[in-house]
């Protein structure tokens, strides 16, 4: 164990010394250095006083907490359950996001093709890809929520070309 700490390293150790979380031998070595340095001793005293001033805690009812805990057996049983209760909802949410993403991608493809090749027949709707960086089914629930919100926000945006012609093959529901 090294003991040639500089002032910064010693100051870093003072709150750990005050809280009693320094290893025993290191704590003894730090105390020896503090005893020889009035500035460090003052800082240790301040840190100790600050700690003591914040030691009070709201009362906790241990019995009530323990009574609310799941049993080890129930936790093991829950882990062994084959299908999560909300898995169905997650599948529905994935399907909805994928459908909306497809509509958005097809709409963007149509707008692009009408802008660049006027009058040309757009190719049949190609398989749209939404570049998310990860497959849709690997998105977490939080990521799905955020994506849904973003897609809904797109509904409020005006189309670049509200009068653009749409090939019948690309009309929704066709």
């Amino acid at each position: 164990m090294r003991e040639d700490w500089d002032e910064g390293e010693l100051r870093d150790r003072l709150p750990l010394l005050a809280a009693g979380t320094l290893a025993a031998d290191e704590g003894a070595a730090v105390r020896a250095r503090v005893a020889a340095d009035p500035a460090l001793a003052e800082e240790l005293a301040l840190v100790g006083a600050l700690r003591a001033a914040h030691l009070d805690a709201p009362v906790v009812d241990v019995t009530r907490i323990v009574a609310a805990l799941p049993s080890p057996a129930s936790v093991r049983a829950a882990r062994a359950a084959p299908v999560r209760a909300d898995e169905g909802l997650r599948v529905l949410r994935l399907a909805r996001v994928a459908a909306v993403a497809m509509v958005v991608a097809v709409g963007a493809l149509t707008t692009y093709m009408n802008a660049t090749v006027p009058g040309a027949s757009p190719a049949p709707a190609a398989r749209a890809e939404l570049r998310l960086g990860v497959p849709l089914d690997e998105l977490s629930d939080e990521q799905l929520h955020a994506l849904e919100a973003e897609i809904r926000a797109l509904d409020g945006l005006p189309a670049e070309e509200p009068e653009a012609a749409v090939h019948p093959a690309l009309e929704l529901g066709a």
Binding site: H54, L55, D56, A57, P58, V59, V60, D61, V62, R64, I65, A68, L69, P70, V75
Partner: peptide
């Protein structure tokens, strides 16, 4: 539990600390 209660109170949740502490342990276990 006392440390968790102290921590929760330090985050400004002294009034709801008891419930938060219980929820913490339930979630943890």
């Amino acid at each position: 539990a006392p440390s968790v209660a102290r921590f929760v109170a330090s985050l400004g949740e002294r009034e709801g600390a008891a419930e938060l502490v219980q929820d913490t342990f339930v979630r943890a276990f």
